[in-house]
């Protein structure tokens, strides 16, 4: 079986809500989170999706 979609990174400002396998990036503010997500998107060649205001994931499609 091949997996075509994968969560490459999780970026959050709320540490309480997350845990698990993907690399997690904790940020203090929303602006910092946007910046980190934009960089990771470019580096990882994935798309950043917003699950809520305080949680982004980078997904490879």
């Amino acid at each position: 079986m091949t997996i075509d979609k994968a969560i490459l990174a999780v970026i959050t400002t709320n540490k309480q809500k997350i845990g698990g396998g993907a690399p997690i990036f904790c940020c203090d503010t929303k602006e910092e989170m946007d910046k980190v997500a934009a960089n990771l998107e470019a580096i990882l060649d994935g798309i950043s999706h917003a699950l809520s205001d305080e949680l982004y994931i980078i997904v490879k499609h």
Binding site: D34, A37, H49, Y56, I57
Partner: peptide
């Protein structure tokens, strides 16, 4: 609508970054 991109009422995809 939030992070969701729509054409009319059809959902296209989720774009997280405000810049994008």
């Amino acid at each position: 609508d939030g992070a969701g991109l729509y054409v009319d009422n059809i959902y296209i995809m989720n774009i997280g970054l405000p810049e994008r």
